[in-house]
């Protein structure tokens, strides 16, 4: 069990394939630790209430909203943030299809799409719709985002990483 009496505890987090040692309070959200302790600012604070998906990251290849997850819950798991995707097909597809305007929601959408493609390399339209309804884009780029994800499914956009 982690030491509860200390105000801060030292934990190792496996982030984007690197082990990072960090001092956290047990109640710190993963979003807060990523941004404020590790300077990984790809995951964005939006609603902070689990509604908008701007803060989405992957933990063990599943997508989670990092504003409603404690950092301590991710100890021992592999965390992937948008900074951990390098030249992935879905990132390239977002660029190619202009699937953003202001870009604030984009890292969250990309992480959700990445997790979706890992689980369902050939998703139906219904599955895509169900997964993507977890994220909100204030600039309403939904059509372009769908085009981006289906261009990856159909192998029209590649990248150097999966």
């Amino acid at each position: 069990m982690p030491n509860p009496s200390a105000k801060k505890i030292s934990v190792s987090l496996n982030i984007n394939g690197e082990m990072r040692q960090v001092e956290i309070r047990p109640i710190d959200t993963l979003l807060y630790v990523l941004r404020h302790h590790l300077s990984l600012t790809g995951a964005k604070p939006g609603c902070l209430n689990g509604d908008c998906g701007a803060c989405s990251v992957m933990v063990n290849d599943n997508v989670y909203k990092s504003c409603i997850m404690l950092a301590i819950e991710s100890v021992g798991s592999a965390i992937t943030t948008v900074e951990g995707l390098k030249d992935s097909p879905i990132q390239n597809a977002f660029v190619k299809h202009f699937a953003f305007q202001c870009g604030y929601c984009t890292p969250g959408f990309i992480m959700n799409c990445q997790a979706l493609l890992l689980k369902h390399p050939h998703p139906t339209y219904e599955v895509v719709k169900e997964w993507l309804s977890s994220n909100i884009c204030r600039c309403t780029c939904y059509q372009e985002i769908e085009e981006a994800i289906f261009s990856v499914v159909e192998g029209r956009v590649g990248g150097t990483s999966e």
Binding site: M1, P2, P4, S5, K7, R25, P26, I27, D28, T29, Y32, L48, L70, I72
Partner: peptide, 10 residues
């Protein structure tokens, strides 16, 4: 985020 010095047990 929750405020205060909350303890965590697993």
């Amino acid at each position: 985020m929750l405020a205060g010095n909350i303890e965590y047990y697993q």
